[in-house]
Amino acid sequence: MADLLHGSNDSDQSENQETVKRNTRYGLILFTVYLCLYGGFVFMNAFAPEKMESFSIAGVNFAIIYGFILIISAFILALIYGWLCRLDVPASKSEDSK
């Protein structure tokens, strides 16, 4: 799909194709992880809402805990992505971009 991404006309890109491919792959993997978390949440709410209140951890019910997990994990996954993509793939000569 990298050959699809040739359309930009005058933006100041320094990325090479390897970096683009790698970032896309990481993005899709992390996206799938989150999709499973979110999907699980939505389907549980739709088909087993009573399960969401059936038990508590430290007095806080599962509905709240799962909600917080979704929000916090979104941020953590975003940080992981940022960390994985922090450097360009060394196929290009330099790693000067931050």
Binding site: G7, S8, T24, G27, L28, Y34, L70, L77, A78
Partner: peptide
């Protein structure tokens, strides 16, 4: 919030390139 995951992991960078 979940929508942002789609934005970051799937859309953001390719879109910026385009």
């Amino acid at each position: 919030l979940a929508g942002w995951i789609v934005a970051l992991f799937v859309i953001a960078e390719p879109l910026k390139r385009l």
